[in-house]
Design a protein around this nucleic acid. Sequence first.
DNA 1: CGATATAGTTCGACAGTCGAATAATTCGAT
DNA 2: ATCGAATTATTCGACTGTCGAACTATATCG
Lengths: 151, 151
Amino acid sequence: MVDNSILVRLLRQLTIETDRFAEIFGEKQRMHRTDLNALALIMDARWTGEPMSPGRLAEALHMSPSATTAVLDRLEASGHVHRTRSAHDRRKVELHVNDSALELGRAFFVPLNEALTRAWDEFADRDKEVIARFLGASIDATKAVRAGLTG
Amino acid sequence: MVDNSILVRLLRQLTIETDRFAEIFGEKQRMHRTDLNALALIMDARWTGEPMSPGRLAEALHMSPSATTAVLDRLEASGHVHRTRSAHDRRKVELHVNDSALELGRAFFVPLNEALTRAWDEFADRDKEVIARFLGASIDATKAVRAGLTG
DNA sequence: CGATATAGTTCGACAGTCGAATAATTCGAT
DNA sequence: ATCGAATTATTCGACTGTCGAACTATATCG
């Protein structure tokens, strides 16, 4: 019998471990958590049609525009990102990750992905569906409670 | 068919949502992430026999002793924690959470626990066992890769 | 008893974040 | 078409969290 409290504890452990993993990655690259999060968001935006802009990035990071400018200055100085002005709306800035950052990310996260894939090999497709539903339900529940808190 | 990449994405979303939840809790209480983490660790230590000390807390937080002193000063000033000197070794300081902090934490995390419990009701005991194994395997895999990185 | 080690704090310096003010561009109303 | 308002991003000054080094107090070992 698996108690709910055990699942809660496991989820917490998992987030702590994931956090620590990202932390070490940041130390190796001399990047702070904020810069890492920003880089991940800029990378993600590549699959959404439009490139990330400083404004949207500030919202996604829950940070002030000025702080976001500082983040981008750091990322640009370290060669992970470069800025271009939008051709259609010259107020906007488009953010692009450089190849070096992509390679860097791959070098770090491919081993993790491989380890996770190995760990998940033992689970049947039916089990994976259950797990996916579980994760989805947990995400939705967390979102719902959070929405109730903010307003 | 549930691809592994879907599971990876779900895990990531879940950690992001959990993170944001803690972030909002911190904003409401005017506490930073570090203070929250510290408070959680001090609370956890209540179940391990010995109360948390500033030194062990610094290690657990991956912070310098001086920064930890600052954290504890803030937590003590806001009335969430109080310090006592150990009777056996008067160099050591024992950290205790005040009742107000316990109530505060309950008020915030009980709703989340309830929502998660409701969301998990639909899963049979057999499924929960599978999920627990999955989470445990993911934690272990992350730990293993991290250990390979640090040295 | 004296020397060394340990636990925690204080102090000065540095770095990340914020709010307010600014520059450049676009949009809307007349 | 033009002037005012809104949008986007940046700069600047101030605040705050974190660190490293020096310091105090207590414990342990020779």
